[in-house]
């Protein structure tokens, strides 16, 4: 793959006038409606799918703002209610000396979502543009984004579990805040955004470049 990524002479299916199946990867003639192997609908790469990517991404970004501004957890201990946001929770954990957990939360709740936004934006932007990064590397990036996106939900799981476990009435109780919902939505939206991205477009653009070049 390393070699292939850098080999300009590789002929892509797009360059060959064929259409790859999105599900199993088998290439077909453009007039074939259904994939011979898996029976999925064979569609040509659609540049307009980028619209959906951008739309979901934007939605994810929008809801990511309240996820960070509003409190994630509402902790009531002996009548005193404390609201804590994601970032505030990380800071609290650091202050309490739980650096490991603080790092996990920080990575899962802040770094990964932010990196995902950046990655998707990068991929979407580079579909139609010539960039230094090879199509292989970009495809790999796409794979990583698609894989890692679900792990951002770890924070939402923590909140859900705590909320259901710690309900001791007056003594102590933990309730999810608005941010929990927002964050879950944000993760979901970015995942949908990543799913909407047609990875063939990476290669198409490359092919066009190739052709043009």
């Amino acid at each position: 793959m390393e070699n292939a990524g850098r080999a300009p002479q590789v002929l892509t299916a797009h360059a060959a006038g064929l259409v790859g199946c999105v599900q199993c990867g088998r290439v077909h003639r453009p007039d074939v409606m259904y994939c011979d192997r898996c029976g999925a609908v064979v569609t040509p790469p659609d540049p307009s799918s980028l619209q959906r990517v951008w739309a979901w991404l934007l939605a994810g970004l929008i809801v990511y703002i309240p996820a960070n501004v509003f409190p994630m957890l509402r902790t009531s201990i002996l009548g005193q209610t404390t609201d804590s946001t994601i970032y505030g929770g990380v800071v609290d954990l650091v202050h309490h000396g739980s650096y490991g957990i603080a790092a996990i939360v920080f990575v899962a709740s802040i770094i990964i979502p932010c990196a995902k936004f950046v990655a998707i934006i990068f991929l979407a932007l580079t579909v139609q543009r010539r960039v230094r990064i090879s199509t292989h590397a970009r495809h790999k990036l796409y794979e990583v984004v698609e894989f890692i996106g679900r792990w951002s939900m770890i924070d939402v799981f923590v909140v859900a579990i705590l909320s259901s476990l710690v309900q001791l009435d007056f003594a102590a109780s933990i309730n999810p805040g608005i941010a929990a919902v927002s964050f879950a939505l944000s993760v979901a939206f970015t995942m949908i955004s990543a799913e909407s991205f047609d990875s063939r477009l990476i290669w198409n653009a490359d092919g066009e470049d190739y052709n043009n070049g």
């Binding site: 619209q51 959906r52 739309a55 979901w56 939605a59 994810g60 929008i62 809801v63 703002i65 939206f189």
Partner: peptide, 17 residues
């Protein structure tokens, strides 16, 4: 794309919140 309705909705909800 109809998908644009999603960010619009998200924006509306966020603004509402």
């Amino acid at each position: 794309s109809l998908a644009w309705l999603v960010p619009i909705g998200a924006l509306a909800v966020t603004l509402g919140v």
